[in-house]
């Protein structure tokens, strides 16, 4: 029982720390905190798809789609901020369902290839329609909340909280059982009456929504983006590696992975300005080979945290 309580103490401490963090630190750490939270959202969103045995590269595309839709509806159609977010989410849901309808019946590898191609093509479209998207020059929007980082922090913390709630719901509801069954044996799961395509579509769409929200937040927070950044595999890769490192199929894993990797990345960025992404490659390889359950799995081996 004592150990059982300790888990809640840690969670409570994490929540309090996340809440007071922007008020006790300076601008630089606030900025770092905001980006870390955004990556935590992305890592969780990638994990949503992974839970249904989907290796999705589409979150890169949805991140960019969210960024561009939100920025363009805000700039060109004069939508207020919340409506521009809503427009981005709506479009993402439509695209995710359409893409899912076409690809979700495919088995793992084919799905991965199709989503990779999807993201790459959105990049080409963003580059090739300069009249709409600004082409390679990208787009600029006014800064979020007049540059008040505390508010930005609260917004992204709110989005992360929403993602965490969804994730916990997925873990505690029938989704969890369906996902585990599909991961163990998709064939057996569907024979037993699990509608695998429907569950995949649900997890894929949820994944897309949170990637899109992260993207929409990102463009307003950084005030400017270009196609090569918004649709870059770099951001997609980072969130994927964070989930793998922290521990797949869990709520704490991707969030923990985001925090750990963002700290490492920030250190690496200073030491190796070009090619700091090498650490992501290394961690992905090492994580798959040696840490199949991620940091959360390691932590479970420590008795006092059980």
């Amino acid at each position: 029982m004592k150990n059982f309580k300790l888990k809640y103490v840690i969670v409570a401490a994490a929540i309090i720390l996340a809440g007071i963090f922007p008020f006790i630190t300076g601008e630089y750490y606030r900025h770092l905190g905001i980006l870390t939270l955004m990556y935590a959202v992305l890592a969780l969103s990638w994990d949503f798809a992974a839970r249904a045995e989907l290796v999705s590269f589409a979150h890169t595309g949805f991140f960019g789609l969210g960024a561009y839709t939100s920025a363009l509806t805000f700039l060109k159609l004069g939508f207020p901020l919340y409506l521009s977010f809503a427009a981005a989410v709506l479009l993402t849901i439509v695209v995710a369902i359409a893409l899912g309808y076409l690809t979700l019946r495919l088995s793992g590898i084919y799905f991965a290839i199709a989503t990779l191609a999807f993201s790459e093509v959105l990049l080409v479209v963003a580059l090739q329609l300069p009249n709409v998207t600004g082409g390679a020059m990208g787009i600029s929007v006014p800064s979020l909340f007049g540059g008040m980082r505390v508010y930005s922090y609260c917004l992204i913390l709110g989005i992360l909280a929403l993602a965490v709630v969804v994730s916990i719901y997925l873990e505690r509801s029938h989704y969890h059982l369906a996902f585990s069954a599909m991961r163990t044996s998709p064939g057996a799961a569907s024979v037993l009456g699990v509608n695998t395509v429907r569950y995949r579509l649900a997890s894929f769409t949820l994944s897309a929504i949170f990637s899109c929200l992260a993207g929409a937040f990102y463009v307003h927070y950084t005030t400017t983006t270009i196609p090569y950044e918004a649709f870059s595999l770099t951001i997609g890769v980072a969130s994927m590696v964070m989930a793998v490192l922290g521990g797949l199929y869990s709520t704490a894993g991707p969030v923990l992975g985001a925090i750990v990797l963002k700290i490492i990345e920030e250190y690496m960025r200073v030491t190796i300005p070009y090619g700091y992404m090498i650490i992501y490659g290394l961690i992905l390889v090492a994580g798959i080979l040696f840490l199949p359950k991620g940091l959360v799995g390691v932590q479970k081996k420590w008795k006092f945290l059980k």
Partner: peptide, 9 residues
């Protein structure tokens, strides 16, 4: 994931 990691590396 492994081969993608090697690719990034």
């Amino acid at each position: 994931l492994l081969t993608f990691g090697i690719s990034i590396f």
